[in-house]
Amino acid sequence: MLSDRLKAKFDSVIARYPLKRSAIVPLLLFAQDEIGYVSDEAVEEIARRVGVNPIEVIEDIGYYSMLHRQPVGKFHLQVCTNISCMLRGGEKIFEHCAKELGIEHKQTTPDGLFSLEEVECLGACCGAPAMQVNYDFYENVTPEKLDALLADLRKKDQGSRIKD
């Protein structure tokens, strides 16, 4: 079930456009932010709300690289290896992530905590090498800073579990 908060957000986003279907991509991304991926239910719900066939929503999911049909990790590590980052060690950062987490491109750790993706230019070229964890930018990343970040994220997860 989609939350009431999300449903309210859907309504306000759809209202921005003269043509409801304009809202498809934003709605997909907001649904994914809440659910962790785009579920079948979200596809149906969005299609219904904007008045299109579900296949039109699925077409969009296939096109936009940030949208996922399967759950990703709680912390989705997106490491840029495009030209500016490559020149300053982006590939090493990616490999370091892969080694530390024991997963590869587009894989998720068995505990569901981390997933890894090699991504294209994030728009952080002057802070290369750069990566994003979910929507947060991390720039001028080094293997050492990465280790600290991963430890930090693990701690953060622990903290949230205790709170729960």
């Binding site: 299109v52 936009y64 690289s65 949208l67």
Partner: peptide
């Protein structure tokens, strides 16, 4: 504001318009 969801091609103006209309870019 309107958010994209990961597509370089949507920087091309007509692809951007399609994307803004909820279509593939």
């Amino acid at each position: 504001t309107h958010t994209g969801a990961g597509a370089y091609e949507c920087g091309e103006e007509t692809a951007l318009l399609n994307s803004l209309e909820g279509l593939r870019g």
